[in-house]
Amino acid sequence: AFVSDDYVMAADTETLARGRYLVEALGHCTECHTPRDAVGGLDRSRWMAGAPNPSGKGTIPNITPAALDWSEGDLVEYFTSGFTPDYDSAGGKMAEVVENLSRLPETDRAAIAAYVKALPAVP
């Protein structure tokens, strides 16, 4: 296992380690998917548990297993095409994220999906 600040996550494989690197270091997914504390820092106790949209319109979804029940294959498809398992599509800034993710090798998209599925569930 390795530690990412206040939470521990099993990362026994190179795939999970690669996914963590892509999500946390390069992708900055936490910037939108993790709520902020009173002084604007990331609330690490709610890692990737969704947050208010900075635009003031709606929310950024919780992508921990507590709220997102997509399979790893569903996630890879979403990162590739922007389509959800329910045939909805990525919107707003996430559409731009998907456009960039779709250019990654499928192994990287699969690593990101593995990381997301391994996140601690936060209701």
Rank of each mutant, 00 (worst) to 15 (best):
Y7M: 00
Y7H: 11
Y7I: 05
M9S: 05
M9H: 00
M9N: 06
A10L: 08
A10R: 07
A11L: 06
D12Y: 09
D12R: 05
D12K: 07
E14R: 02
T15P: 04
T15H: 00
L16P: 01
L16D: 01
L16Y: 00
A17M: 08
R18V: 02
R18I: 02
G19F: 01
G19Y: 01
R20K: 11
R20A: 11
L22D: 10
V23C: 11
V23L: 03
E24L: 07
E24Q: 09
E24F: 00
E24N: 08
L26N: 10
L26T: 13
L26D: 11
L26W: 10
G27P: 03
H28S: 11
H28Q: 13
H28T: 09
T30F: 09
T30R: 01
T30V: 05
E31G: 08
E31K: 03
C32R: 06
C32G: 01
H33E: 13
T34A: 14
P35G: 07
P35A: 10
R36I: 06
D37S: 14
D37M: 15
A38I: 02
A38G: 09
V39D: 13
V39F: 05
G41C: 05
G41Q: 12
D43A: 13
S45H: 10
R46H: 12
W47L: 02
W47K: 00
W47T: 00
W47D: 01
G50T: 04
G50M: 02
A51D: 12
P52L: 11
P52I: 07
N53V: 11
P54W: 14
G56M: 07
G56D: 08
K57G: 04
N62H: 04
I63A: 09
I63V: 15
P65T: 13
A66V: 07
A67D: 15
L68R: 11
L68F: 08
S71I: 08
S71E: 10
S71V: 10
E72R: 12
E72Y: 05
D74R: 01
L75K: 02
L75Q: 05
L75C: 07
V76D: 05
E77N: 13
Y78P: 01
F79P: 03
F79H: 10
T80V: 06
T80N: 07
T80Y: 06
T80E: 09
S81P: 05
G82F: 05
G82M: 04
F83W: 10
F83H: 03
F83K: 14
F83D: 06
T84M: 01
P85E: 12
D86N: 10
D86G: 00
Y87T: 13
Y87R: 14
Y87F: 15
D88L: 10
G91E: 15
G91M: 11
K93P: 02
M94R: 08
A95Q: 15
E96A: 12
E96C: 03
V97D: 04
V97A: 08
V97C: 03
V98N: 01
E99N: 04
